[in-house]
Computed example of a mutant assay.
Amino acid sequence: MDFNPKKKTSNFLLLIASFAIVSLILWNTNSFFKKFKEEERHKMEIWATAQSEFLSLPVDADPGNLHIKIFQNNTSTPMILVNKDSTIKVNNMPGIQNIDTAFLQGKIKKFKEENKPISIEYKGEKLATLYYGNSEVLNKLKYYPIALLLIIFLFGAVIYFLFKTNKTAEQNKLWAGMAKETAHQIGTPLSSLLGWNQLLKTEDINPEITMEIEKDISRLETITERFSKIGSLPILKEYDIVEETKNAFDYLKLRSSKLIHFSFDSKAERLPVLLNKALYNWTIENLVKNGIDAMRGKGSISIEIIPSGNTVRILISDTGTGIPKKNFQSIFNPGVTTKKRGWGLGLSLVKRIVEEYHKGKIKVLSSTKEGTIMQITFKVNN
């Protein structure tokens, strides 16, 4: 459902532009890494050339300031120089002793993997082999692309979350608007029904008929009130949750199939809870109707109210086909339904009414092939 095509397009273009910028930074970083590695290679080749000339000098000859300066300036790149007589010299590797041959051989192997060794020759004669590793700066730079990839991932996750939240907010506004419009549309025929019922009372008919019509009109008024409250913060008042639960339960009991067995049990006579009466009754009716649907019109529905310290638990049980454990959380998401018909909004609204409006908790307490138990928890208003 596309609520705002222009906004959606602009958000998509923003996302593409952001990824393009991050990808460009990643590409530049990779290019810089390669260039830095090439420059380090060039520096090591200069050092190897100086070393070649130094090794070719007579023992008592002056090496010259240039050679010394080249050797002194290279303080960051770890090196292992293996002379033709197999003697080993280590540079820029503090704490490493030349006598630790096994460790040095391991380092030589690692350096060969990082960089191609440089053969030091003079007039065709091989004097030594230089093995060198990446400098500390290069090693840190090597992990920078990984850090950027993580940033891209986190950035994408944040964008996705923002888009999803924005879409959900737009959907909520749409559903709230539809609900309020439905309540408004029901109001006109409902007023007419009230008038017709008053007219029927003046006729010589069975009073029980008009009494039942009044109950259904009252029911329509309750439904209208419920829809009108969607999207706005409901007012909570103190009600006896035992009485309100039983009233909603009994209403459905009278209008359900005789093949369904209803049972109600409360471990307390009265429990005051801050409720919005219309929305709470809607919650109970939704859960009971879901149970009836799960039983395909035949089975047992029960409600048990259990006080527990400063809270009260309402257990709604049915003998339906059950819910797979993997779906215990997802069934409360909008659009999720196990029915062939329906939009999957019932349990989503129930969760919102219980947790957002009443600060309670709702969950699937247990579910097997023999039935399901839903649990609502509220704080008792002491």
Rank of each mutant, 00 (worst) to 15 (best):
M1T: 08
K7S: 06
K7V: 02
T9H: 04
S10F: 12
S10K: 13
L15S: 14
L15Y: 13
S18V: 11
A20I: 08
S23E: 14
S23F: 15
S23K: 01
L26E: 11
W27K: 01
F33C: 00
F33Q: 08
E39A: 02
S52I: 04
S56W: 10
D60L: 09
N65C: 00
H67Y: 09
I68A: 01
Q72S: 10
N73W: 04
P78H: 07
P78G: 03
M79C: 13
N83E: 13
K84T: 14
S86L: 11
K89F: 10
I96N: 06
Q97P: 01
I99H: 10
I99E: 15
D100C: 00
T101V: 13
L104I: 15
G106I: 06
G106T: 10
K109G: 08
E114R: 00
P117Y: 05
E121V: 01
Y122M: 02
T129I: 10
G133Q: 09
G133A: 06
V137D: 12
L138Y: 03
L141V: 05
Y143K: 07
I146R: 04
L149E: 10
I151C: 06
F155R: 01
F155K: 02
V158P: 03
V158T: 11
V158L: 14
L162T: 05
L162E: 04
K164V: 05
E170M: 09
A179R: 06
A183K: 04
H184D: 12
G187S: 14
G187M: 10
L190N: 06
L193F: 15
T202Y: 09
E208L: 09
E208I: 09
E214R: 00
T224L: 10
R226I: 14
F227M: 14
K229C: 04
L233A: 10
E238W: 00
Y239E: 15
D240N: 15
V242S: 11
E244L: 12
F249E: 13
D250G: 00
Y251T: 03
L254Y: 11
K258R: 07
S263N: 14
D265Y: 09
D265C: 01
E269D: 15
N276H: 07
L279K: 10
N281V: 00
W282N: 14
T283V: 15
E285F: 04
E285Y: 05
N286M: 11
N290M: 03
G291R: 08
G297E: 13
K298Y: 08
I303K: 01
I305D: 08
V312L: 08
I314C: 02
S317F: 06
T321P: 01
G322P: 13
I323D: 05
P324A: 04
P324W: 03
K325S: 04
N327P: 00
I331H: 09
F332L: 04
N333I: 01
N333Y: 12
T337N: 08
K339T: 04
K369I: 09
E370H: 05
G371K: 02
M374L: 15
I376P: 11
V380L: 13
